[in-house]
Design a protein around this nucleic acid. Structure first.
Lengths: 251, 251
DNA sequence: TTGCGCTTGAATGGATACATTACCGTTTGA
DNA sequence: TCAAACGGTAATGTATCCATTCAAGCGCAA
């Protein structure tokens, strides 16, 4: 996989140490902070796809030994965020176009199911919370913050269904595509969230699921064009500050 | 969680070492063989729910050090088969009634989707393979072997959809309930697999999904009675040979 | 000049040893 | 007599060290 000719992206040490300090401050154990640091570094684009993850380098950067790193990499391998081969090391996994399409299909199935389940369960308290989360998201301008608030909005909504596994699955799939899309310039779709939110607010499961499905179909079609036809709009792999990256609004 | 009074089930050392030897012979690395051993020990009932999994004990039984055990336990924790707490150890996770219900609901959603996707993709080669897998499963009498062949049948079928994530999710959910049901006596349902298989063979997605959904609804209703109303039919937690355990045919 | 094979280096896989933490029993005080 | 604090014990968390393995690079021979 990794050859001399195909230089793997360099690691932005500074941003990675910043991330680590955040998680260490949260009172997590060394292993947990290592896991969360690497996971979020991948999801937020600090560690670009195809980056080699050498245990010793990461241990040095995170200020720990290799043991917690190894366990973190094992879990991330199982999650699908990194790829490991025995005695050959780990790399940040790049999603293939077909995988992104499958994820959107799965998201359509699972999120529509969640909507149908949760609509009859919505309480006034839920609706108030959700409206607040929606407004926060809509107001955010910083891309990283927008991403976080968007996920908070959707997860607050879906958690109404009281289906922890369903919500967990949805959350994971959403993050995975969000990661992949950080590096592509995709068309902005400002009204999707609004249409969806208003359908939820009106208790109209039919309209909400239709909007989800139709939007994800559009996204998939766009992705197919961008990803299959030579990936014309790829950002530089790493190095640019995240604030320079346009919103991955389609998700 | 674990107190002096609530004695956790003892580990059947002999059966566990037998399992280990199987996996070690397969040429896996130590970590992989530890992972597979513990995973299948849980799924096949050798390690009963609430069994304490002490790293040192497992290391001694599997003939290794604690490191591979630790990594295996981390992955199993992520899979949801074991529960770990810092400095307090790991135990085999027991599924709550509500979780089993959610899993069946998720299975209904995912498996029905898989059926709808795969029916138009079926080739003659697929159908021949699937028929063979079905006959093998129907002929098996040993419970462990039946369980394995049943999963092979369903996974061979679903893999036609060319959706690796979807199939992986389904496989995991199926195994999880199979594990939970090993310890409960549930009504035998011999015709379900047959009806489902014949619908697939006829290319009738509607009939196949209807059968799946209706069957899983029945199972959920049964489970609700058994699991919520005092769990009247629990088998002895461990010690009995697996051949004495009736088929968990409902899955 | 090219291809095969050995050597060598660097990275991961695994084992042993030490640090830390949580539980449980005991003791001591009111 | 009861409650709270303290210490012992046993488990996991972490670090250091050794073994294994893969592959790149060099050399030799055809």
């Amino acid at each position: 996989m990794e050859r001399r000719g195909t230089a793997s992206p360099q690691i932005d040490v500074e941003r990675l140490t910043d991330l680590t300090h955040e998680f260490q401050a949260a009172g997590l154990s060394v292993k947990e902070s290592a896991l969360e640091t690497i996971r979020w570094a991948i999801l937020r684009g600090v560690l670009a796809p195809s980056t080699r993850l050498r245990q010793e380098d990461l241990a040095a950067i995170l200020g720990t030994s290799r043991i917690p790193i190894r366990e973190a990499l094992r879990i991330l391998e199982y999650e699908g965020l990194v790829e490991s081969e025995a005695h050959r090391g780990s790399v940040v996994r790049a999603l293939e176009a077909s995988e992104i399409e499958e994820i959107y299909e799965l998201r359509t199935v699972l999120e529509c199911h969640a909507v149908r389940v949760l609509i009859p369960l919505l309480t006034d308290v839920d609706l108030a919370d959700i409206e607040r989360a929606y407004v926060d998201m809509a107001d955010a301008t910083d891309p990283d913050r927008h991403l976080i608030l968007r996920e908070q909005f959707y997860l607050r909504l879906y958690s109404v269904a009281s289906r922890p596994r369903l919500v967990g699955q949805i959350a994971r799939l959403r993050l995975e595509v969000a990661r992949a899309l950080r590096w592509r310039l995709i068309q902005h779709s400002p009204t999707h969230h609004q249409i969806f939110y208003e359908a939820i607010r009106d208790g109209d499961a039919e309209r909400a699921t239709a909007e989800l499905a139709s939007h994800y179909r559009k996204v998939t079609a766009l992705l197919r064009r961008f990803l299959r036809d030579g990936e014309p709009q790829r950002d530089p792999p790493i190095g640019g500050r995240s604030s320079a990256i346009p919103h991955p609004e389609v998700t």
